[in-house]
């Protein structure tokens, strides 16, 4: 077995997995009948179709040439996710100002060759801007500093 189109092969496997999980998790939902559709009726049909398409896409990827999967670069996605996670975890504790600054610092390191001074200045400025816009101008309920 030779995979001729890695992208499509991956996509096919993803569809099969997605559909199969849907079928498995939804298996205890009542299917019902056409006359009286149960909560499982529509999802089961959809999941079966997803699995079917996954099988076709996978099969085609073995016979037709296609593009390779580009190399995954870990730096960007890791730092971006880290930035969001830090913000989400900390905002309730330390407030919008500090969590915004942290988000920008983490996000900046998604690139190489970070100019730390520029980034810190930019982070502080943006945090101030965001607090003025969102908290004072738009009145969003958000702690500005820790403990309100």
């Amino acid at each position: 077995m030779v995979i001729k189109s890695p992208q499509d092969f991956g996509a096919g496997i993803l569809f099969i997995l997605f559909g199969a999980i849907g079928l498995y998790v939804g298996s205890d939902l009542n299917f019902g009948s056409a006359r009286n559709m149960g909560p499982g009726y529509f999802p089961m049909i959809i999941c079966s179709l997803i699995v079917l398409i996954g099988l076709i896409v996978t099969a085609k990827s073995l016979s037709l040439e296609g593009p390779p999967i580009e190399r995954i670069q870990f730096r960007p996605i890791l730092f971006i996710l880290l930035a969001i996670a830090a913000f989400g975890l900390l905002i309730a504790e330390v407030g919008a100002v500090i969590s915004s600054i942290l988000l920008i610092l983490f996000a900046a390191y998604a690139r190489r060759n970070v100019n730390l001074i520029e980034t810190v200045v930019f982070a502080v400025g943006t945090a101030a801007f965001v607090v003025i816009i969102f908290v004072y101008a738009l009145g969003q309920p958000m702690p500005v500093w820790w403990g309100r």
């Binding site: 913000f87 989400g88 988000l103 920008i104 943006t126 969102f134």
Partner: peptide, 10 residues
């Protein structure tokens, strides 16, 4: 991009 990301999170 950090500013856009911050916008999304907020």
């Amino acid at each position: 991009y950090p500013a856009i990301l911050l916008f999304c999170a907020i």
